[in-house]
Nucleic acid binder design. Structure first.
Lengths: 208, 208
DNA sequence: CGAAATCTCCACCTTTTGGTGGAGTATGCA
DNA sequence: TGCATACTCCACCAAAAGGTGGAGATTTCG
């Protein structure tokens, strides 16, 4: 049969791509048909090769993984994408799944887990590990930050003072304080430094 | 000839190990003789296999990369270790090189860069890329934190207040402030939140 | 030994941050 | 239409953080 599963691998690290290709090569019914090193390339190559499954890292240069997923899913609503990332505390998991990813794997997994996930997702099901599902549920339950609060939080992480944030966003310092108050209570912390580190830990913002 | 280079691969991510093994397998004169997933295992396997070259990730469970390097180099002063990491801003580079690493590579490298580095280090030379050497020189030039300042900085990143830090360290709040003043000026920042984020960015401390 | 660095602490002051409670406007959804 | 949410802003207050300058004790190292 010509039923070998066509796979695209997206990761900016050459070694990781190599590892995935090597792992997949041991499976007779799977084949890597394309490799991309960034989000843009992933979108282009998806158009060209229409892989059955895309294994995608979230941290990518140019266009990040979440954006790439959204774009690909817009063009090809049936695209099946499995997210592959190093950081399990990452808020982007949630965003990626919302953007239409069908599976999620940590890079520490075994070959078996990978091939199982590929088969599961290829068969049309989703494959989200218990740990992640749990964290996701947790996350969903918890209060989410508004976009304005995110603007402020990013600047807190960037080390800006309330005054600077106010002028960055063209609002008064009082408003900044209001937002910060919401942020602190939503994150369950008591000052901006904690807000910064827990935001980084939970992957709500990144140090790029 | 029996002159194939014996290599040990240390990384907690299965995929990365697989990638390295696959890359190295394409070189006829190199061979992976051992794989370790954490620092302890790396030390044990080094005793058993005495590889010519060890490729070591720095972020490892149990015993971190730097400790493992130090331990291995204590037992086998001639061990040749190449550090392999994802994060190029990482302060651990410096520590790893001090601990006796002979080479340093980012995971984004090409197959050529890897094999070249292996050959260079195997021949007894060091192989530190220009970018890293530069950053290292920069780092050396810059003021370094004292151990007490590091104690304080860690707690700042941990989101502790001055009062809490004081009681953690059994010193007065005044002393904490003194240390923080030094930290801020040494890091070239103006408040604790910036201190936290730049410390994370430069890899001086980690969010574990 | 003597200089340098480190660690500890104090006083005094200014600025920043966080806490509380209230309030008006716009938007969107039931 | 009416309620909920998000965004904006205000005043007032208390606590925390940061800036400056000085000082004694200990260790380290040339």
């Amino acid at each position: 049969m010509s039923e070998s599963i066509q796979i695209m691998v997206v990761d900016d690290h050459h070694i990781v791509r190599q590892g995935l290709v090597a792992l997949i090569a041991t499976m007779p019914d799977m084949k890597v048909v394309a490799e991309a090193a960034d989000g843009m390339q992933a979108i282009e190559l998806h158009r060209r090769y229409r892989p059955d499954i895309t294994l995608m890292d979230l941290r990518l240069p140019h266009k990040n993984g979440v954006e790439a997923i959204a774009q690909i899913r817009t063009e090809f609503p049936t695209a099946r994408i499995i997210v592959l990332t190093t950081f399990d505390g990452d808020e982007d998991i949630y965003r990626a799944l919302q953007a239409g990813a069908k599976g999620y794997l940590l890079k520490g997994m075994t070959a078996d887990e990978l091939t199982q996930a590929i088969r599961t997702v290829h068969s049309g099901k989703s494959r989200i590990p218990a740990v992640v599902a749990e964290r996701l549920a947790e996350r969903m339950g918890g209060p989410s930050l508004t976009s304005r609060e995110l603007d402020v939080l990013k600047r807190i992480v960037g080390g800006r003072s309330n005054k600077e944030i106010a002028s960055d966003l063209f609002i008064s310092e009082a408003t900044v304080k209001t937002h910060i108050n919401s942020i602190l209570s939503k994150l369950g912390v008591s000052d901006r430094t904690q807000a910064a580190t827990t935001a980084l830990q939970r992957g709500i913002v990144h140090l790029d």
